[in-house]
Computed example of a mutant assay.
Amino acid sequence: MPGSPTERAGAARRDWWPFALVAPLILFLAAGFLIPVLMMLSRGVTDHELASAWPETAQALRGWDGAGLPDETVVPILAAEIVGARKAGHLNLVANRLNYDRVGSRSLVYRTADALEGGAPARSFADLARIDPRWSEAGQWASMRQAAGPLTSFYLLASLDRRLSPQGAVERVEAEQAVFVDILLRTFKISAVVALLCALLGYPVAYLLATLPPRLANPLLILVLLPFWTSALVRTTAWVVLLQSEGVLNGFLIGAGLIEAPLPLIYNRLGVYIAMTHVLLPFLVLPLYGVMKGISPVEMRAASSLGAGPVAAFLKIYLPQTLPGLAAGMIIVFTLALGYYITPALVGGGADQMVSGSIAFYTNQTLNWGMAAALSLLLLLPLGLMLFAGRYLARTVPA
């Protein structure tokens, strides 16, 4: 039977007490991390530059069906807003945005602004065409319509080497501009190879730590944790010293007579694999070690007493129980590797840069935050699917 109202109120207070304790942390994470990240990612699917600088032009273009040229009444509106945006200092925003879609649009906008401020008439498309013939091209107006916002597919399509044609159909960009799909595939390939290398190298280490006596395992575990006390930048820089042509490793191999000329160990894919595997290896060893410590050695002895050989006992008894930890470790390594920027930039070549380098370029140099957000979304969506797959694998693996 339910208790008295006083008892129920007391139980409710006890249930909410843990949430009250973590509420400040949740609010801090929401204000300092979640909300800024969501605001940044929203830039990948929104378009505000043209609408903020030319609001009436944007409104007129949204009502246009995209066929041919828009109604000529938009011309004087556009002319007035170009001059107004120039005076307000906002013309660069829309000029840069249009230039992302059609190269040369920036010069078109500024040339038109100079002509209009010089007294050139702008009452019809013919007037604009006299300033610059590109105003008579349907594609120029179609790109402005796509930039009118507030929602846009431009950045996501561009991050997949696609774009909208003047007729609104999705088409491939020119071959010399198609770079992002290759970068994304390269990013996932490097991350997958690094996760596999960490699994191959980390499994024996975790097994050794889990099976040794504590007096020996604890010092070795400290060695595994030791890299966490040094930044990834310092560790990557150390690999530059070790792997370069005149570095420690090549010097040792040449001095030992094993090679005659230095091996190309850096500024290529091999250097990226070596450095990233070293940096991320502890993230696989630790979760796998935690799972292995929970496996009782009695089970292996029982399998041996029933006639199973060491290999069969390991494959049928021990390995299946470690798969959740192995999957968790590989997912952690893969996730961290996807976002690596410093290591490929320092030890990799031009053909080894990952998508994080492109995100940093668009964020810090060109200030094209929409493109940076779209590339980030392309990393997040497959990553989310992989995390769900990892949880499903962990539930389905037999204990």
Score class of each variant (00 low, 15 high):
residue 241 V to K: 07
residue 130 R to M: 08
residue 328 A to S: 13
residue 40 M to R: 11
residue 269 R to D: 09
residue 79 A to Q: 01
residue 17 W to P: 07
residue 8 R to G: 04
residue 306 L to N: 08
residue 99 N to V: 05
residue 344 P to H: 06
residue 14 R to M: 07
residue 4 S to Y: 03
residue 123 R to H: 13
residue 159 S to T: 07
residue 88 A to S: 11
residue 233 L to H: 11
residue 215 R to V: 15
residue 92 N to C: 09
residue 94 V to T: 14
residue 216 L to H: 15
residue 328 A to R: 02
residue 256 A to R: 14
residue 325 G to Q: 10
residue 164 L to P: 05
residue 98 L to D: 07
residue 165 S to I: 01
residue 50 L to E: 00
residue 214 P to A: 15
residue 383 L to G: 07
residue 83 V to K: 08
residue 365 Q to G: 06
residue 334 F to R: 03
residue 108 L to P: 05
residue 17 W to D: 15
residue 307 G to Y: 08
residue 58 A to M: 06
residue 181 V to G: 01
residue 318 Y to K: 11
residue 273 Y to S: 00
residue 39 M to Y: 03
residue 4 S to A: 10
residue 167 Q to K: 14
residue 351 A to N: 15
residue 17 W to Q: 14
residue 284 L to D: 06
residue 61 L to H: 01
residue 180 F to L: 05
residue 221 L to V: 05
residue 39 M to V: 14
residue 270 L to I: 09
residue 341 Y to L: 05
residue 114 D to Q: 13
residue 329 G to K: 08
residue 253 L to H: 09
residue 361 F to D: 02
residue 265 L to G: 10
residue 63 G to K: 13
residue 277 T to E: 06
residue 209 L to D: 00
residue 143 S to A: 15
residue 172 R to S: 12
residue 192 A to E: 02
residue 394 A to Q: 14
residue 293 K to L: 15
residue 185 L to M: 05
residue 92 N to V: 12
residue 297 P to C: 03
residue 389 A to V: 12
residue 233 L to C: 00
residue 38 L to E: 12
residue 342 I to S: 07
residue 49 E to V: 06
residue 337 A to Q: 04
residue 207 Y to E: 10
residue 79 A to W: 01
residue 251 G to K: 06
residue 267 Y to M: 11
residue 219 P to W: 03
residue 97 R to E: 07
residue 198 C to S: 09
residue 330 M to T: 03
residue 388 F to C: 09
residue 45 V to L: 05
residue 57 T to V: 04
residue 393 L to W: 09
residue 314 F to D: 05
residue 214 P to D: 13
residue 283 F to I: 11
residue 195 A to W: 10
residue 381 L to M: 10
residue 323 L to G: 06
residue 59 Q to R: 13
residue 307 G to V: 05
residue 191 S to M: 04
residue 276 M to Q: 09
residue 94 V to W: 02
residue 1 M to P: 01
residue 265 L to D: 10
residue 397 V to G: 02
residue 365 Q to V: 10
residue 364 N to L: 14
residue 97 R to N: 04
residue 274 I to E: 01
residue 308 A to Q: 10
residue 345 A to I: 03
residue 36 P to A: 07
